[in-house]
Design a binder for these strands. Structure first.
Lengths: 240, 240
DNA sequence: CCGGGGCTTTGATCTAGATCAAACCGACGC
DNA sequence: GCGTCGGTTTGATCTAGATCAAAGCCCCGG
């Protein structure tokens, strides 16, 4: 079909649900031809999940992959005695799931209310096998996630509590809204306890450090969740 | 060539250097046809580097990728004020390098004496573009590295010093010798200072915890570097 | 045989962040 | 309007691990 070579000029052949989807622009679906997208969309299902919903459990088989369309998903690992660590946050339009293995090594939980586009395992794996460009795109995201995980290892292993909290705020400011490079205003997608689990701290320490940033006029916080960053450069400097 | 379909039965067509190489068995070269291996081997070069040699610098362009053939490579990140974190260790036959980007996000340094098989950027990227199986294999390794990075985030964020040191020893016991699942005897590839940088501790704390494991008869240490694990199960239990 | 330089161990003290405890705040149901 | 409940803040105290300090060990070179 001649149109296939002009997929970026208009998208009349693209499924309605996909037309405004972030994954179509910056996510994995951007590499699919309209015909592939139509075929894939027959197998996908958009689902909404409330904050707190468990999307996949550590060491449990997962029947489907997903793209995050809206909201934030947290990936956690837990030691036998209950100590918990958040090992990653996924924002729209990130791909969600551990490719090529039956069960996930992490627990995935909705941090905020989320909207996911679920893709059955088999359908996606078939498409990957047929279309190397899709695997390439997913490889790119995986490499980015690995870079980010390693950055975070520095934060966990070598930064002070103050630097950790500043780093967290900066991470959210740069990742929450896919349309902005650095957002000055945003709602925190995590509770203080979750932030602590992401930073390797206690919730009391997180709260104290946020209070300090507020006292120092770097940020303002309204309703516990809403953050205004007065001076992004100053916040960045505090990241260590 | 009919032989191509029988590449696992014998390897008379495989370059001499590759025949006993770990990468040919468990590394990325395992997916290459003999003909591809011959072509690739024309561009590769085996190099030895002494412990401490810098193989790639953070934010500096890298001219080639490599496979680790022998020894251990440490990947580090450094904050402006000099605080350092080791964000990964690469053992034979791991692939070394950040695909699809000009410059590395980490510093790569030989932790022990190492032997590398260097592949020029362009040659490998061309081969990847031609052979999706190779990208698939590299994707598998990248996913495994991501899993390991996330496991380590739990260690960094939530474990005690004692658990961190035990976890490090267990990591080495399971990764250093590609032919063994769990080695009871091995030489530590890192100094106490490096171990500290990997665990987010000080070298004094590492030393104290090693002394404690020795006092508790979990391990013995000879010549600072050589470790004997008396009871692997007990070591594992101490990993938290 | 002696001296110096890495690396490591061990000891004494200090402190960032944990833990324990109490109060606060806003939302919600009754 | 009032109690209660999840999440948060703030305060007082405690402790794991950092920091500071001093040997010790091993290897190498003279």
């Amino acid at each position: 079909m001649a149109m296939d070579t002009r997929k970026d000029i208009h998208n009349s052949e693209v499924p309605v649900l996909c037309q405004s989807c972030e994954a179509r622009h910056n996510g994995m679906c951007g590499v699919l031809e309209p015909s592939e997208l139509v075929a894939l969309s027959k197998a996908t299902r958009v689902v909404k999940q409330p904050a707190g919903a468990e999307l996949a459990a550590e060491a449990e088989p997962v029947a489907s992959y997903a793209n995050v369309m809206r909201g934030v998903v947290k990936l956690t690992k837990t030691l036998e005695d209950g100590r918990q660590q958040i090992v990653g946050l996924q924002f729209a339009p990130d791909f969600l799931g551990r490719l090529f293995t039956q069960s996930s090594a992490v627990t995935a939980q909705a941090a905020s209310d989320v909207e996911l586009c679920r893709v059955p395992r088999a359908a996606l794996e078939r498409l990957i096998a047929e279309n190397p460009a899709l695997e390439h795109r997913l490889m790119q995201q995986t490499l980015r996630e690995l870079d980010e995980a390693r950055d975070w290892m520095v934060t966990l292993g070598r930064k002070t509590a103050a630097e950790k909290v500043a780093s967290f705020l900066y991470l959210i400011a740069t990742h929450l809204d896919p349309s902005k490079e650095e957002a000055r205003h945003f709602d925190l997608p995590l509770t203080r306890a979750d932030i602590a689990d992401f930073l390797g701290l206690t919730l009391e320490t997180v709260s104290r450090q946020l209070s300090k940033l507020r006292a120092d006029q770097v940020i303002a916080i309204a309703n516990n969740r809403h953050v205004d960053v007065f001076d992004m450069a100053r916040l960045k400097k505090r990241c260590g």
